[in-house]
Amino acid sequence: MKRPKKEKKNRDMAIPTDSFSDIAFLLIIYFLVATTLIKVKSITADLPAGEKSTQAQSEKTPIINLRGEEVFFNDKKTSMKELNERLAALELAKQEAEKRVIMLESAQGTPYENYFQALAAISAHDGVVAIVENEK
């Protein structure tokens, strides 16, 4: 008995790629719309880590005190603008590493806004921040 011949399917083996570019561009548009470009602005502060100094710092080391909303530079009340001017006058960039240290002391309740501005001012004038920790 003769086996019935299998009917050959007339298949075209090529994968249809006509719509690929449409899909790809749709994906691109999706990424472009869904992406949020974050432009982060910051200040860099390299705080000296490590041992706590038990010795009192030299009296000549400038100290910034933050007491709530008030700012004191070497125990004299000042404003953030004046603080910037006084730090600029110190020309810390030209000083040796040891003389670039600026002590930063803050009272309880000092908001981060003030602290950040003081930190930014010190960093902008090439100072090295030393946080003063009150003894408990």
Partner: peptide, 22 residues
Amino acid sequence: PREVFEPVLQAIASAGGIIEAV
């Protein structure tokens, strides 16, 4: 207030990190 953020700053510094304050 200082009581909240300063320990965190000190922790980063103690661990050897350079702080990028945003």
